[in-house]
């Protein structure tokens, strides 16, 4: 039983791709596809690494991360954020929210895999 990754993402094809890559590396991948109850899902079953999309239905990735860090004491939870909006102000927003890694789509599979490994080992 490897370490667990929780992937919050709404684009089915991307879910499929990331699940495939991480599973092959021995990770247990769980997924969730909307922002509404994402915080509760994380809280209910804390993963080793959280992968968070920004543009989610219901609630943005920034808001979810802020809530986790500020209101639920999840200051140590390693978070990797993925976004299709690649402007510098999006990176700033993510860092303000307390992200550990920030990767812009489209990404290379190796890049995501390395990031998750780093975060999982820390």
């Amino acid at each position: 039983m490897g370490k667990r990754v929780l992937l919050i993402e709404d684009e089915p094809n991307i879910i499929e791709a990331i699940s495939f890559i991480l599973s092959r590396d021995g990770w247990t991948v769980e997924t969730h596809a909307n922002g509404h109850d994402a915080v509760d899902v994380v809280q209910g079953n804390l993963p080793d690494v959280l992968i968070l999309d920004v543009m989610l239905p219901g609630k943005s990735g920034y808001d979810i991360l802020r809530e986790l860090r500020a209101h639920h004491g999840q200051t140590e939870l390693p978070v990797l954020m993925l976004t299709a909006r690649g402007q510098s102000k999006d990176r700033d927003l993510a860092e303000q929210a307390g992200v550990n890694r920030f990767i812009t789509k489209p990404f290379s599979n190796a890049e995501v895999l390395d990031a998750v490994r780093d975060l999982g080992e820390a």
């Binding site: 684009e11 991307i14 791709a17 890559i21 299709a84 402007q87 789509k105 990404f107 599979n109 190796a110």
Partner: peptide, 24 residues
């Protein structure tokens, strides 16, 4: 920003799966 997002999303899938097909 919107266009960027709309373009990057399908391209993400394309890149990810093409890498999978290539590497695995």
């Amino acid at each position: 920003s919107q266009i960027s997002h709309e373009l990057r999303t399908p391209m993400t899938s394309v890149r990810a799966f093409s890498e999978i097909l290539r590497d695995s």
